[in-house]
């Protein structure tokens, strides 16, 4: 099995996002691995462990700091790492999906995994777009994958805890909602060892695509309503909440 994981390095939303012009100021934000991609990497490695093969992780190097992410993926069980040296922090999902698809084309992938979404998917997620470019079927919202005889059986989650089981003749692109097991811990010893020994293949970006969206404004959401904030120490907060609940007969 040739398994490819397409990942996204995205602005961290742990802190406030600075705005420059009509978009996020990409030069002054930290980039992190899309959290769904952590699940996606795990699912890919689980499939490899079950049926054998190799896992290649590929991503666009948005700000020149993708190596650390790729090292982590290798430490978790990926076999190869490829970075597309775009160094364009503003590259949108359409552009990234095109570059990724072009890079993946030569990999004879049986399965391509991608996180089902990312917090900067303003113009759509990369998974279905890669599928469109590679002319492979796509299923997103997937929370378990089993493979046998070049057929994948995946569970897709719908709303309300309902799901659907699908069988897909490979190759395909999978949008991972959650891996069938929680992502594993990559020992720092392993990450450091990988950082010293691993080679990351560099690929130049190829193919143009655009979201076709013109950004008119980017700002924190206009707040229509806001919670009544309870001030004070944690003990004060607790006291007020308990009082509130008692007054409403909820405690």
């Amino acid at each position: 099995m040739n398994i490819v994981v397409a990942i996204k390095h995205i602005p961290s939303i742990a802190d406030d996002l600075p705005v420059k012009g009509n978009n996020v100021d990409f030069d002054s934000v930290d980039f992190v691995l899309n959290e769904f991609d952590e699940q996606s990497i795990e699912q890919a490695v689980l499939v490899k462990e079950a049926v054998g093969g190799t896992v290649t992780v590929v991503g666009v190097d948005m700000i020149g700091e993708l190596d650390a992410v790729l090292h982590l993926a290798l430490a978790k069980g990926a076999d190869k790492a490829v970075k597309i040296t775009g160094d364009d922090p503003a590259a949108d999902s359409h552009q990234q999906a095109k570059w990724l698809a072009e890079a993946i084309k030569g990999m004879s992938a049986d399965m391509v995994f991608a996180g089902v979404q990312a917090s900067n998917d303003l113009d759509g997620q990369i998974g279905p777009m890669i599928a469109a470019h590679l002319d492979m079927p796509y299923i997103g919202g997937v929370s378990s994958v089993e493979v046998s005889d070049h057929t994948a059986t995946v569970n897709k989650e719908f709303a309300g805890g309902i799901g659907g089981k699908y069988s897909v003749s490979l190759p395909m692109v999978v949008g991972v909602q959650a891996a069938s097991k929680p992502p594993r811990y990559a020992p720092i010893s392993k990450v450091r060892q990988v950082a010293q020994t691993a080679t990351i293949e560099k690929v130049s970006p190829s193919g143009d695509a655009t979201s076709g969206l013109a950004f008119k404004k980017m700002a924190p959401p206009v707040v229509t309503g806001h919670a009544e904030m309870i001030e004070g120490s944690s003990k004060d907060v607790a006291k007020k909440i308990v009082e509130l609940l008692k007054s409403k007969g909820l405690a």
Partner: peptide, 9 residues
């Protein structure tokens, strides 16, 4: 316990 990398970090 074996996690030297973590220790070094």
């Amino acid at each position: 316990a074996g996690e030297k990398g973590l220790f070094e970090m």
